[in-house]
């Protein structure tokens, strides 16, 4: 089932369906490349020396995500426990909220 063409879905859903594909990624890459190239065209008024390094921000952002993903992975490996770890003292171990509970709340 392709969400992009599924006419039973609302128009916004179909639009979002397009984003879900490869297109978004390549659009982003295109925008990113353009923005990165602008570093060479535009001279910013940096306060810190290292800001002047070309592609500093782009690289820093990408590196941040990588660091975060890796750190998250390590934390997950170290600290992940079952949902019942604290049961019955937490809501994590409880079943999904039933419809009437949600309405009541």
């Amino acid at each position: 089932m392709n969400a992009k063409t599924d006419t039973s879905l609302p128009a916004i859903a179909r639009l979002l369906g397009r984003l879900d594909g490869r297109m978004l990624f390549w659009l982003l890459v295109l925008a990113g490349v353009l923005l990165a190239l602008s570093d060479f065209a535009y001279h910013r008024h940096e306060i810190f020396d290292f800001e002047a390094v070309p592609l500093f921000y782009a690289g820093f952002a990408a590196a941040s995500v990588l660091v975060l993903v890796l750190a998250g992975g390590i934390f997950r490996a170290l600290f992940k426990r079952g949902e019942n770890f604290y049961a019955p003292f937490s809501t994590d171990s409880e079943p999904p909220l039933k419809a009437q509970e949600r309405d009541h709340a």
Binding site: L24, F25, L28, V29, A31, G32, L35, A36, S38, D39, Y42, R44, Y57, A58, G59, F60, A61, A62, S64, V65, L66
Partner: peptide, 15 residues
């Protein structure tokens, strides 16, 4: 410019 670069590369890195 700074912010757009940061945001776009964050998103690119994620995908």
């Amino acid at each position: 410019l700074t912010q757009l670069q940061v945001l776009s590369f964050t998103a690119i890195a994620f995908f």
